[in-house]
């Protein structure tokens, strides 16, 4: 592939993926409100368009027209940067997620992944952990006690869950012998080769840590509406506020895609086109997220820490050891 075609193809891929992800983010909010409503015997949004499908657009317009308030005590520059810092990493991790099989268009073989890094998984983990800086900085720069508490909580939570998060996929890597996402998907070619069946404990740990990683209920302590107003985004308004929300949902989609890729066989699946399989699996995962939110109450802070260090961490370590041992046999 010549340099020019490469550039064009990459630009197209990036544009398409970013657009699709942003759309996904918008309608993930709709999905969450709708599903959560049904879980609680409500209807959810139903006024804007059929089934309330235009609700995200209405919300976006509303948020854009809101006044952008910057508190007097805020550190202006950091305050402005924090939403961006938390939003960009959420998008970055899509760079290595293969969404479909290799396509052939105009005689060109095109990988349906923006970049097939040989350290794809590491890249994802590095980038998603960056997002927490956005929260910490937001909490610190707002000059408000609730924000600060939220920021501190998010960093403490991140430290305790990042370890198990990383360890939970070591098992998969040991089995697969690769860090590249594309190769991982290729190895899960039949249903029972999916890593969810070869690494069930790893999958459970991964899901738990992923929920904690994206600050979703029951691990939504940095936001904790009932204790901290809105945690790190208390002082934010308008588009900056919505950037945080987009970051949250983009992170959810990112984590769902990564989980799909690592454990659920990525785009692999019969009959339907590979891309559709990928979307279905991600959708399933997003619904699961919402289901968790509808079911579990928020953990107390000390429980969260206990759970992270005393339960998840040993389990993850044990999982790695057993896998390594079995692999060696």
């Amino acid at each position: 592939m010549s340099t020019v075609t490469f550039l064009i193809v990459s630009a197209v891929k990036v544009t398409v993926i970013v657009t699709v992800v942003l759309m996904g983010v918008a309608w993930a909010t709709w999905l969450e409100r709708k599903l959560l409503g049904r879980f609680q015997h409500r209807i959810g949004p139903n006024m804007a368009g059929p089934y309330g499908l235009l609700q995200p657009i209405a919300d976006a317009i509303k948020l854009i027209f809101k006044e952008d308030i910057v508190p007097d005590k805020a550190e202006k520059i950091t305050y402005a940067l924090a939403p961006i810092i938390s939003f960009i990493p959420a998008l970055l991790s899509f760079a290595v997620v293969p969404v479909s099989d290799t396509l052939t268009i105009f005689g060109q073989k095109i990988d349906m992944v923006i970049s097939d890094l040989n350290i794809g998984i590491l890249f994802v983990f590095a980038v998603t952990s960056l997002g927490v800086y956005g929260m910490v900085l937001a909490g610190w720069s707002s000059g408000s006690k609730y924000s600060l508490l939220g920021g501190i909580r998010s960093s403490a939570q991140m430290i305790s869950y990042e370890v198990s998060y990383g360890l939970s996929i070591i098992g998969v890597i040991l089995l697969a012998n690769t860090l590249s996402m594309v190769e991982l998907v290729e190895q899960q070619d039949s249903f029972f080769n999916w890593f969810i069946f070869r690494q069930p404990l790893g999958f459970v740990l991964f899901v738990i840590c992923a929920v904690a990683e994206t600050n979703r209920s029951p691990f939504d302590l940095p936001e904790a509406e009932s204790e901290l107003v809105a945690g790190y985004l208390t002082e934010y308004s308008s588009m900056r506020y919505s950037l945080f929300f987009m970051a949250e949902y983009a992170n959810m989609i990112a984590v769902s895609s990564v989980a799909t890729t690592i454990f659920l066989g990525g785009w692999q699946g019969p009959i339907l086109p590979p891309f559709l399989w990928f979307v279905i699996k991600v959708f399933f995962f997003m619904c699961f997220y919402i289901w968790i939110r509808a079911t579990l109450p928020r953990l107390r802070y000390d429980m969260l820490m206990n759970f992270g260090w005393k339960v998840l961490f040993p389990l993850a370590l044990a999982n790695v050891m057993v896998t390594a041992f079995l692999q060696r046999l």
Binding site: L35, G37, R38, F39, Q40, H41, R42, I43, W291, A294, T295
Partner: peptide, 14 residues
Amino acid sequence: FYTTFKHLFKKPVT
């Protein structure tokens, strides 16, 4: 989880 799942299919009271 089963409880919430059950409620997903009940008629909304809205």
